[in-house]
Design a protein around this nucleic acid. Structure first.
Length: 464
RNA sequence: GGCGCCAUAGCCAAGUGGUAAGGCCAAGGUCUGCAAAACCUUCAUUCCCCGGUUCGAAUCCGGGUGGCGCCUCCA
């Protein structure tokens, strides 16, 4: 492994910078999680997968990663959903947190070290707001507490907007009780029927931005290395987090802000108003979830990507190519007649992968390197110098990379035994040269969505 | 109006000064009892257009055209 440094694009400066962590060897990382009022959609998935990939790579490079991702479990959307379902906000939140973990696992997103919930961070949030009121950065207005944006002189540094520009922008909400149009809510007074918590300013609940500031402070400290989220969170969310945290704590919230690009659906923006969002739960029924993950990492994370059925078909085929190669190696390893041989030096491949990922996590190039390895493996498999150690070298490399990419094969138990019984039966028929029967079984398998491939080392099978 | 991004083969996608990665599709071939499978090979003299800088540009600069995002809940 080389010892070059990791470089990453920092939204704060608009440049690629060398990663220098606060504490050597440790990366403190926070990424904005979902508001748990529904299944998460493919846009959310891109953000989660992006930061999961970054986290995996940082670990791969030997860093200890402390990763926190929140659940927003109380807000307007949850309240509406609870009303709609005639249940409580808490019940909605619990339900969709559970669903989050199911879908996250499906597309290979590992659990964060901590998944704090707003409702479990209330004390710290209130203390944080209180601190801002005490130090004069926030003011109380009609039961609400607002952050006074001009008090934070660097307001706008992330979104590269001056306060004047923001104030003159026609789209900033105007509200009479605010001192400035850009001021934002830290604490919201409760309306009848809404969940509430006691606070120095009366019954209410936190505004959206404050939770992340409080959670970061609680779980990771006064400042962190990497703060991530979708591109659309730059303003106002992350801008406001910076204002809150840096006003109170007096040091930069995060050294590096990272933002993933958008995902379009059939060249259209995916948005709640267009109603064209697609959730991962449904997608996973239609496509191999690993193909979905491959799609998400096949472009560099900052570039926008377009989701379409056509592209997913391409990803399915690409995924098959990887699987086939891997399984052929595994099959060959079962052969009892392999010479021991020598391990194969794959450091060139490794270096190329590291070089790609070190450069702002360029997973597009990195997946290209993976496919180069696959080609080399395929060539090796048809050569006449196959050895056990050689095969193992390739297998180990693939295992390691597939784990890094989060593309490991997942066991889909269901009817596995039945399939393997049929495959074995077919093999018997073939050995007896009863091809009528073997083809009959093959047809049956195809009806079950199972394909077979006969190799010199045996038959392998896979599902659609 | 302010801030910012993008334009590379039929499709997807890297490449930001040294002569176009990778995937899908397609064509040809190998293997196979057969095979929809698997594998191999081939597949952009050219990077939206026009100028300029340079020995050299898809890459830098100027201008143009087209598309997009944020400024409002949103990954």
């Amino acid at each position: 492994m080389n010892n070059l440094a990791i470089r990453l694009y920092n939204s704060l400066t608009g440049k690629k910078e060398t990663l220098e962590t606060i504490e050597p060897g440790v990366v403190k990382m926070y990424s904005c999680g979902p508001t748990v009022y529904n299944f998460f959609h493919i846009g959310n998935a891109r953000a989660f997968v992006t930061f999961d990939m970054i986290r995996r790579y940082l670990k791969y490079r030997g860093y200890e990663v402390k990763f926190v991702q929140n659940f927003t479990d109380v807000d307007d959307k949850l309240i509406n959903k609870a009303n709609e379902l005639k249940t409580t906000v808490e019940a909605v939140a619990n339900r969709f947190i559970e669903e989050y973990f199911i879908d996250a696992k499906t597309i290979g997103i590992e659990e964060a070290d901590v998944h704090p919930r707003v409702t479990g961070t209330m004390e710290e949030i209130i203390a944080f707001i209180d601190g801002l009121v005490q130090t004069g950065y926030a003011y109380v207005a009609g039961g609400d507490v607002l952050f006074e944006t001009p008090k934070f002189k660097e307001y706008g540094k992330l979104s590269k907007q001056s306060l004047d520009e923001l104030l003159s922008g026609s789209r900033v909400e105007v509200s009479d009780y605010k001192r400035h149009a850009t001021d934002f809510v830290l604490w919201k007074a409760a309306k009848p029927g809404e969940p509430w918590w006691d606070s120095p300013w009366g019954k209410g609940r936190p505004g959206w931005h404050i939770e992340c500031s409080a959670m970061i402070h609680k779980h990771l400290g006064d400042h962190i290395d990497i703060h991530g989220g979708g591109h659309d969170l730059i303003f106002p969310h992350h801008e406001n987090e910076i204002a809150q945290s840096e006003s109170l704590l007096g040091e930069p919230l995060a050294r590096y802000f990272m933002h993933n690009g958008y995902i379009n659906i059939n060249n259209e923006k995916m948005s709640k108003s267009l109603g064209n969002s697609i959730n991962v739960r449904d997608l996973a029924k239609k496509y191999d979830p690993r193909a979905l993950r491959l799609f998400l990492i096949s472009a560099q994370y900052r570039n926008p990507i377009n989701f379409s059925d056509d592209v997913m078909q391409q990803m399915m085929a690409a995924m098959q190519r990887i699987d086939a190669s891997y399984e052929h190696v595994v099959l060959r390893l079962k052969s009892p007649y392999l010479p021991e041989g020598e391990a194969i030096d794959l450091s060139d491949f490794e270096n190329r992968l590291v070089e790609a990922m070190d450069d702002d996590f360029n997973s597009a190039i990195a997946t290209g390197v993976l496919f180069d390895l696959v080609r080399e493996i395929n060539l090796y498999l048809r050569s006449d110098e196959i050895t056990r150690k050689g095969l193992l070298s390739y297998k180990e490399k693939l295992d390691s990379w597939l784990e890094l990419y989060g593309l490991e094969q997942q066991e889909r138990a269901s009817d596995k035994e039945e399939i393997e019984r049929l495959v074995a039966e077919r093999t018997q028929a073939r050995l007896a040269r009863n091809f009528a029967k073997s083809d009959e079984i093959r047809d049956e398998l195809i009806k079950m969505g199972v394909h077979v491939e006969d190799t010199a080392q045996g038959t392998r099978w896979w599902r659609d």
